[in-house]
């Protein structure tokens, strides 16, 4: 019973909160550029509208293009649900594992990249090739960072990591975790196709990565892909929030109000991280594609130094 309740809560939180960070990032960017910007909740309306539309599909495509949006959505939702929005009602048998988390996201990406190639357009192929390349380059940084986080918890299971981080109090005071946090921010930017790796607002096909892959999708397909991307971003932000900002100000409040307050605190953390991403996005420019390896190298170095900082004292 508790398990089912927990999963329902997780899925509901993910579905409801996922489009929020994107709205916040866009708002921050708009304000920095002295524009008013779209309302915070615009993406919710867009998604609803797109979901009501039927899809236009290229005559060169196959089942891959039509299946991919659903796979991307389902895997992103699963990964998002794996990241606890609140640890208050965590069930005993929790199947979450950090390595699994990233590979579930990779499964969604596999189909996304495939669907980019399906229409036989050069733009789709370009986006797919770039996405495959970028995701491969940041992979080592991600996994080493994961190992660093796991070293503190002596486990890669998500509840284990969370309880270890909660026990640390303020994890960012650990130099090791501080470095890993910076690495994960870079990974997040690359994985969610944000500036400086990709520009989500671009209208020029030649510079697109994520947008080029979904160029052939429309209507409900596009809605699911956008929603999937939002869920993926939510999942990664939730990972950052859970691991690096585990502080729960309402720990003393018991029962249902406590759970609700913890959820609110979680949403605030998400918003804070979105502000950070938005600030990075407003302050930097998109990198040349061949400079992305530099970024990946820096992320890897940060992760590796993070592990090193943990290993040096000899425990």
């Amino acid at each position: 019973m508790k398990t089912i309740l927990y999963w329902l809560l997780q899925v509901a939180a993910a579905l409801l909160l996922a489009p929020l960070p994107i709205g916040a990032i866009r708002k921050v960017k708009a304000l920095v550029q002295k524009r008013k910007g779209a309302p915070l909740l615009q993406l919710y309306r867009d998604l609803l509208k797109l979901l009501r539309k039927s899809a236009v599909v290229s005559d060169a495509t196959s089942w891959v293009l039509r299946a991919a949006p659903f796979v991307v959505f389902a895997t992103s939702l699963f990964a998002a649900a794996m990241m606890p929005a609140t640890v208050r009602v965590l069930p005993d048998a929790f199947p979450g594992d950090l390595i699994l988390f990233f590979f579930v996201l990779a499964l969604g990406r596999f189909f996304l990249v495939l669907s980019g190639m399906d229409a036989g357009s050069s733009f789709g192929g370009m986006g797919s090739a770039r996405e495959a390349m970028i995701s491969a380059l940041v992979e080592p940084a991600m996994l080493v960072g994961l190992f660093a986080v796991g070293l503190f918890a002596k486990t890669t299971s998500i509840p284990g990591v969370l309880s270890a981080m909660t026990a640390l109090g303020f994890p960012l005071l650990q130099p090791s975790l501080l470095l890993v946090f910076l690495a994960f921010v870079l990974v997040l930017l690359a994985e969610t196709s944000r500036i400086p790796v990709d520009d989500p607002a671009t209208h020029l096909e030649l510079t697109m990565v994520h947008e080029a892959m979904v160029l052939e999708d429309s209507g409900r397909h596009l809605a699911l892909l956008e929603y999937g991307a939002a869920l993926k971003q939510y999942a990664l932000l939730a990972l950052l929030a859970d691991v690096f900002l585990p502080y729960d100000p309402f720990a003393a409040v018991p029962g249902v109000p406590g759970v609700l307050l913890a959820l609110v605190a979680f949403a605030v953390k998400l918003l804070f991280l979105s502000l950070l991403v938005g600030a990075v996005e407003a302050a930097t420019v998109k990198l040349r594609f061949f400079s992305v390896p530099n970024l990946a190298a820096i992320a890897f170095i940060l992760s590796f130094l993070g592990v090193l900082q943990f290993l040096i004292p000899g425990r």
């Binding site: 820096i298 170095i301 130094l305 900082q309």
Partner: peptide, 18 residues
């Protein structure tokens, strides 16, 4: 604090390098 500062110092050396 000094441990964090020292890590940041090392990081700044890498930023310089990059």
């Amino acid at each position: 604090f000094s441990v964090v500062l020292s890590a940041l110092l090392l990081l700044s050396a890498f930023v310089l390098m990059a």
